[in-house]
Simulated scan of single mutants.
Amino acid sequence: MRILITGAGGFIGTTLTAALLQAGSLKNAKGVSEKIDEILLLDTHLPDISDPRITSMQASIADRETRMRIAAWKPHSVFHLAAVLTSAAEADPAAALAVNVLSLADMIETVGNRTAPPRLIFPSSIAVFGGLLPDNVDDDHLQRPQTTYGTHKAIAELMLADATRLGLIDARALRLPIVLVHPGPPTQSVSDRIAGLVRDSVAGQPSVCPLRPDTKVPVVSVDTVVRNLITLHDTDSTALRGKRALNQPALTVSMEDIVTALTIVTDTTPQVTFEPDAELKKIVDGWPKGFISTRAPSIGVTADKTFDEIILSYQRHSGRETSTA
């Protein structure tokens, strides 16, 4: 089996690559577990991985020669992770459109095959929802995105559904809340501004929280996201009941909850200063606080149970299992 990962050099991409290498197999279109023979990593920047199953391609999907090579390679499955995130998309909508929408169109054209449609797994976003929202937002809530990024993801979901209807691909999308904990270096993305609380506190460093203490956000660990993307890939299409996108169930926590969990896990008093950022608050206030899915449990897509577990997962990845007190 040949697997293509775009955006492979990113946070989720590197974690997914490691998980696939460890698993060694995925289910094919017949539902039979099949050995992974090769993983093609595509991104403009990639880490060095010494595994004979890995082929690295430092390039852009927008490049015609790159698309020709992928088309000739004929991947059985694609994890299309490449994206320009919320803050960057707001700053440059045109550049974000090229990555978030047009590159997906290029990918569908490149790998689409009516005879043997590849599975295409896509991380969508909680940002497809917006406006006046109930306490809990389920899979089929009306989409009213309030950001450029959310609009692009909503467009992408429709594109994937249509390409699946046409028999070109077998698409599955998982809408993600805030994914934690990015290892750094720090960025201006929404998720990383919150991740910084964990990174700094685990390292015994002072941290600035850009949201009010009582601000609640839906979160998920990168390990849970990767596990669920693989689960979604392996799910029989009949179990999706004709719907190609579902929510990643989230754990809802306040900034105070995060500080409390850090206090317990690190056995220290985190040095957190609250300095609310008005622009970040505007983005976060437009998202659901409770992010649920009625369909996820039936196919094994789950949420994290506690924020303590998310911190412990980060400690394992970063090699900081012990307290820095």
Score class of each variant (00 low, 15 high):
165 R>L: 04
186 P>E: 11
306 T>M: 02
79 F>W: 06
256 E>H: 11
275 E>C: 01
216 K>F: 01
260 T>L: 15
34 E>D: 11
178 I>N: 09
42 L>G: 05
159 M>P: 00
206 P>W: 12
311 I>A: 07
181 V>D: 03
281 K>M: 14
167 G>R: 09
69 R>D: 10
136 N>T: 13
96 A>G: 15
232 L>G: 14
219 V>I: 12
41 L>D: 02
147 T>L: 10
49 I>M: 09
286 G>N: 05
190 V>W: 03
241 R>A: 14
101 V>Q: 08
287 W>M: 10
204 G>S: 01
75 P>I: 09
157 E>C: 06
188 Q>V: 14
133 L>R: 05
40 L>D: 03
153 K>S: 00
156 A>C: 04
232 L>E: 13
150 G>S: 12
135 D>W: 04
171 A>V: 05
29 A>K: 12
159 M>C: 04
81 L>R: 03
290 G>Y: 11
198 V>C: 14
299 I>K: 04
319 G>M: 08
315 Q>M: 15
68 M>D: 01
92 D>Q: 14
237 S>F: 02
267 D>Y: 05
202 V>K: 03
118 P>F: 14
158 L>Q: 13
105 A>T: 15
28 N>I: 10
172 R>Y: 02
176 L>F: 10
213 P>H: 07
37 D>L: 10
184 G>F: 13
291 F>M: 08
140 D>Q: 13
241 R>T: 10
292 I>F: 06
15 T>I: 01
218 P>C: 00
76 H>W: 06
137 V>R: 05
189 S>L: 03
320 R>S: 05
7 G>K: 01
215 T>N: 04
246 L>R: 04
295 R>V: 01
180 L>R: 00
55 T>R: 10
197 L>P: 01
260 T>I: 14
271 Q>L: 12
115 T>R: 14
284 V>M: 08
92 D>W: 10
223 D>C: 02
131 G>R: 11
116 A>G: 04
310 I>D: 10
